[in-house]
């Protein structure tokens, strides 16, 4: 008797929770894979393709499907660290096959040498180059991600990748280069 009561109670509970869970899975359904979104957030969005995928999002999808997390040179070590935290994988050093971490750069067109072929405009993944056929082109420095993709298509090699200059606003309190500049916050009293 007691056994059957126990069985009935457990059975009723099982059905109730089953229904509850089933309802919750429909009611609170997560539409997309949130991991891909999160990974995409972490990636630097240069859209450079150095990872071997056509843009940051495809690489984010690949990582979500198990690809290595050390294929992003523009992101460098810090991105690998964040990806490791996110995916639970071990942080590996940057895969040299995909390039090396470099200082941030932006493209610069030597304008008097530009022939107006529009090839770089087509190559730019973020529409950061303006110009028209047979007219001089120029780079919108603010929008340029420094992905390097415009350099190769240029038939006359008039695009340089210049390192982004440090301004007082972007200076990181790094006194290595200005040894005399440290703060005299100690006084002999």
């Amino acid at each position: 008797m007691t056994v059957s009561i126990a069985l009935i109670v457990i059975g009723v509970l099982a059905v109730a929770f089953g229904l509850l869970l089933g309802y919750a899975s429909i009611r609170f359904k997560v539409e997309a894979d949130p991991l891909v979104e999160q990974i995409d957030e972490v990636l630097p969005q240069t859209q450079c393709g150095q990872c071997g995928y056509p843009g940051c999002r495809p690489y984010a999808e690949a990582i979500a499907n198990g690809d290595d997390i050390n294929k992003c040179p523009p992101g460098g070590e810090s991105t690998i660290k964040k990806l490791a935290d996110l995916t639970g994988k071990e942080a590996k050093p940057l895969d040299a096959a995909h390039g090396e971490e470099d200082v941030k750069k932006v493209a610069f067109i030597r304008e008097d040498e530009c022939i107006g072929c529009t090839k770089c405009i087509q190559a730019c993944p973020v529409d950061a180059i303006v110009g028209a056929a047979k007219q001089m082109h120029t780079v919108l420095t603010q929008e340029c991600t420094g992905c390097d993709l415009c350099v190769d298509p240029c038939p006359v090699d008039c695009i340089d990748m210049l390192p982004v200059e440090v301004t007082p606003a972007s200076w990181k309190w790094d006194f290595d280069k200005t040894p005399k500049g440290d703060i005299p916050i100690k006084m002999v009293s």
Partner: peptide
């Protein structure tokens, strides 16, 4: 602290920039 603040600010700037790049892409 100054170094940390500068780094955090620049990181935020980077983040905003990559957000913009993503939008444009």
């Amino acid at each position: 602290y100054r170094k940390a603040k500068a780094d955090v600010r620049l990181e935020l700037d980077e983040k905003a920039k990559s957000e913009k790049a993503k939008e444009r892409f």
